[in-house]
Deep mutational scan, measured.
Amino acid sequence: MDVFMKGLSKAKEGVVAAAEKTKQGVAEAAGKTKEGVLYVGSKTKEGVVHGVATVAEKTKEQVTNVGGAVVTGVTAVAQKTVEGAGSIAAATGFVKKDQLGKNEEGAPQEGILEDMPVDPDNEAYEMPSEEGYQDYEPEA
C-alpha cells in the first residue's frame, strides 16, 4: 500500500510541476504579447503594419512553449490582441483601416495563427491545408 501511495504522490508532483510550467509559459506569452502591443503603439504610420505582424510573430513563438489545451486559448487571445492593436492603430490615425491585415508588401496577414497546427491532446499534428499553395516548377 505504501508503494501505491508513494507512486500516487510522485504522479501528483509531476502534474503540479507540469501545471506550473504551463502557467509560466502562458505568463511569458502574455508578456511578449504586451511587449508587441507597446511596440505597435510606438510606431509611426509606416511601421504600424509591420508592428502588428511582430506582435503576432512574438506571440506565436511563445505559444510553442505552452502545451496542451492552453495553446488553443493563448492563440485565440493573441489573435484578438493583434486585431485590437490594429483597431487602436486605425482609431489613433497611425494607419488607414484599409491597410490593416496586410503586410508591407500588401499581402493579407489573416491566418497567421489560424494555420498553425495545434492539437490540445498532444496526440497528432496535421499540416495546414494546401489550398493556398501553388506547385513550383523550376525553369529549365
Rank of each mutant, 00 (worst) to 15 (best):
K34H: 04
G36H: 15
G101L: 08
E105A: 07
G73F: 11
A76C: 09
G51F: 11
V15Q: 00
V16G: 03
V52R: 01
M1R: 00
A85C: 11
E28V: 12
P138W: 11
V15D: 00
T92V: 11
E123R: 04
Q79K: 10
Q24C: 03
I112C: 06
I88V: 05
A91D: 04
G132Y: 09
E114K: 12
A76Y: 14
K23D: 00
D115K: 07
L8N: 00
Q99A: 13
K45W: 15
G14L: 12
A17N: 08
V55L: 13
P138N: 03
V48L: 12
V118E: 08
K58S: 06
I88C: 04
G84D: 03
K102W: 14
Y39G: 02
G86L: 14
A56Q: 05
Q79Y: 10
K21R: 14
K80L: 14
E130M: 07
N103M: 12
T22I: 11
V3Q: 03
M127P: 04
V3F: 05
G14S: 14
T64N: 11
M127F: 12
G86D: 04
G68C: 04
A53M: 09
G101Y: 13
E110T: 13
V49S: 12
A69S: 12
V52S: 02
N122G: 02
E13N: 12
S9M: 14
M1I: 00
G67W: 11
A90F: 10
N65S: 13
G51Q: 08
D115A: 14
Y125K: 12
D121Y: 14
A30I: 15
Q109V: 11
E61Q: 08
K6C: 02
N65E: 08
V82Q: 07
Q134H: 04
K43F: 13
K10M: 14
E61S: 06
L100P: 13
A69I: 14
G132S: 03
V66I: 15
N103A: 05
Q134M: 14
G36D: 02
E126W: 04
V15M: 12
G36T: 15
Q109E: 09
G51E: 01
P108N: 13
S42H: 07
A53F: 11
G73I: 07
E137L: 06
Y136N: 04
E46A: 10
A76G: 05
P108Y: 11
S129C: 09
A17Y: 02
P117V: 11
N122M: 09
T81P: 02
A76P: 01
G25A: 15
E28I: 05
E61F: 05
Q24F: 15
F4L: 06
E126F: 03
Y39T: 05
A53E: 07
L8R: 00
G93V: 09
K34S: 01
I88D: 05
Q109N: 00
Q134T: 03
D135I: 12
D98W: 14
A107E: 06
E130K: 12
K23Y: 06
A78I: 13
V52F: 04
V71I: 15
L38S: 03
P128T: 05
A85Y: 10
V3W: 02
Q99V: 14
T75I: 11
T22G: 04
V82Y: 09
P120A: 12
E131C: 12
V118S: 07
K32R: 09
L100Q: 07
L100T: 06
G68Y: 11
G68A: 11
Q62M: 05
T44M: 15
K97V: 15
A85F: 10
L8P: 00
E20P: 00
I112T: 09
V66E: 01
A91W: 11
M116T: 15
V70H: 01
P128S: 05
V40Q: 00
E123G: 10
E13D: 05
T81D: 02
V70L: 10
K102A: 10
V26G: 00
K12E: 00
N103S: 06
Y136W: 10
Q134A: 06
G93A: 14
Q24A: 08
V82W: 12
D115N: 08
D135S: 04
T54D: 01
T54V: 10
F4T: 00
V71Q: 03
Y133E: 10
L38A: 04
K21M: 12
V55W: 15
V3P: 00
Y136R: 10
E35Y: 12
K23G: 01
E13K: 06
E104D: 09
N103G: 06
Y136Q: 09
G132Q: 12
G51C: 14
K43D: 00
T22C: 06
E57W: 06
E83K: 05
E46V: 07
V63I: 10
L38P: 00
Y125P: 09
P138Y: 09
V48C: 05
T59W: 14
K43G: 01
E20I: 11
T92Y: 06
K80A: 12
T72H: 14
A89M: 11
E20R: 02
T64K: 05
Y39V: 05
Y133T: 08
P108K: 08
